[in-house]
Design a protein around this nucleic acid. Structure first.
Lengths: 346, 346
DNA sequence: TTGTAGGCGTTATCAT
DNA sequence: ATGATAACGCCTACAA
């Protein structure tokens, strides 16, 4: 918001009407060069900054897109996963938003929880992009009934809003196929949270790959975790104790759990990829840095952010178009944990 | 912004005046229980969401704090450093802002550069927190003359605005002292960018520690980099070629460069910490994951974000109080790269 | 090219 | 307890 000086003062000081000031402010035509210069000088001298509230009120558009993330707090965050995840999305979103002249308002579900702080937030934006899982389906529905909403990182959900996510099914399938191509017959799966649509999609991608290879695939994941490092560690410990012999390869629901899995395997005296090959999902920054470097399916986070902002903008402009659900392809990132030796890293 | 339904419609539908609606909206007294209920019901039924622009205009306060970061783009970012850094700051900021009923508007300098997009941004917020280095001193000054501004991650700069940063001097000093306590006599320094006030403060902290130990310290850093991994790698290569014998220990300007340094040392066949001990600065997430784990000085990012939001809020309320410069203590994080063996990690 | 004036949706003051 | 009614600062027809 502009400090004190208003368009009226600029007008007075320049000896013109506010309409003229407004015109030069927006670089419109129909202003004499002289006026333009005079007004410009006054604006600079007075340090005028337009009042966004007034502008938003008049334009019926604040020029602000809200993004709400779910804050996994102490769990996933401590390893810098969520931060990166959200940061890349924000970057993409910001880029797209800026092209449209908008700015990004940030909030995390943790700080936005309580009763209905999202609705309070909704007040300050033209539309809200929400990360799947950061809101209950009920709240999401209520929200969408009030303001333009888009959803990211969502699997095929039930709520009828625009949404965008990575192709979890395809990514997991590709990763699994890669493991299969190594000739590993016994490929097990470490699942994510049961309630997560994304986690389920990844499991299904894994199953499909097995099926296509003529292999038996379990209907349900043998073990699973909550997408955290320790979750992955526990899951693999459990898996090892369940089986008389460890699987030859492992597709893990996400990279973070994969890192935990590596720890569990090391603990059990198993070599990766010698004894057990491994692949994750997401391509978090850490994936390149663990030893061996993690083979994984990359989420196009930036693109997700961009696309989400675009979807949201569109809905703001055209509130009644049919909602779409997009899935962006995941990139197969081959590193060492699968048994490949060449450095396939970019 | 609220979709279509306004306070007038709510009022009409509830059979009261907009004043009454406004009252129940703010939980004010002086409203009969009956009215309160009726209005509440209508609000829910109509899905009313207040228009933030109108509200901001009337209140002279949008309830939004802007944060602008500098986007190191492909350099530092590719390793997930900046993301983490900014994410933690944003978290802290959001927390503090929320307590004050505010929201956080995000922007990065990359996308905000060009001519004066910051000023455009300034339009949409009540105040702006800017990361040091994301703006030229001139722009910062101009900005501060127009809207409330606070600065974070700034060393003692010249511009007269509220600012907050970690105690770079003290942190570097503590880290250096720790290395000295190991009995390493020859401790070299890998500096950050010359223009960075933070980098200089760290160098000075290093010098002070040497001086206090009765050791000679160079007036200028022997080598330096740009705070990136490859920058650190190059700097150390250069250092090794300059000297006939490698230093016994190395204080590196930040963690990211320290990781690069480790690579250079490994390349030269030098063991860390056996041949060369190492310490960094920041405590980025990766620091725990490299081998050996990196000893470093931790930046209290969250606290920085919180404090910055507070400083900004204060300045918005009281534009004329004397600007303050705060430095938060850095925590010494002892891990393996310095030669310590016990696991000092939290 | 320039100016006038109504409207945007809330808040808040002042009556009632 | 409730209701009119000015601001708030900008945008934008519409006039001149």
């Amino acid at each position: 918001m502009g400090g004190r000086v208003t368009i009226y003062e600029v007008a007075r000081e320049a000896g013109v009407s506010i309409a003229s000031v407004s015109r030069v402010l927006h670089g419109q035509n129909g202003v004499s060069e002289l006026t333009r210069e005079r007004v410009g000088a006054v604006i600079e001298r007075l340090g005028y900054v337009a009042n966004g509230a007034a502008r938003g009120l008049a334009r019926k558009r604040l020029g602000v897109l809200g993004f709400v993330f779910c804050d996994l707090e102490e769990s996933a965050t401590s390893d810098g996963v969520t931060p990166f995840y959200s940061h890349e999305i924000v970057r993409g979103a910001e880029r797209a938003a800026r092209r449209a002249g908008d700015a990004i308002l940030l909030a995390s579900t943790h700080s936005v929880s309580g009763h209905g702080q999202v609705f309070e937030l909704a007040t300050k934006v033209d539309g809200l992009a929400v990360m799947a899982g950061s809101l209950s389906a009920t709240d999401l529905r209520r929200l969408a009934a009030r303001v333009p909403v888009a959803c990211f990182a969502a699997g095929r959900g039930s709520v009828d809003v625009d949404s965008i996510c990575v192709d979890n099914f395809g990514g997991a399938r590709a990763v699994t196929e890669h493991l299969l191509e190594h000739g590993f017959g016994d490929v097990a799966f470490v699942a994510g949270p049961k309630r997560s649509a994304e986690a389920r999609a990844r499991f299904n991608g894994y199953r499909r790959a097995l099926g296509d290879a003529g292999l038996d695939a379990p209907k349900q994941p043998e073990v699973g975790g909550d997408f955290t490092e320790s979750g992955g560690e526990n899951a693999v410990e459990q898996l090892l104790s369940k089986r008389h012999r460890p699987p030859r390869a492992l597709v893990v629901g996400n990279d973070q759990m994969a890192v935990g899995a590596m720890r569990a395997l090391a603990h059990a005296g198993l070599d990766v990829p010698g004894d057990v090959a491994l692949a994750g999902f997401d391509d978090i920054p850490l994936a390149r840095h663990v030893t061996p470097a993690l083979t994984t399916a990359r989420q196009p986070m930036r693109a997700i952010g961009e696309k989400c902002a675009q979807l949201l903008s569109r809905r703001i402009e055209q509130p009644d178009v049919e909602p779409v659900m997009l899935a962006l392809p995941a990139g197969l990132i081959v590193r060492k944990s699968c048994g490949c030796t060449e450095n396939g890293d970019e």
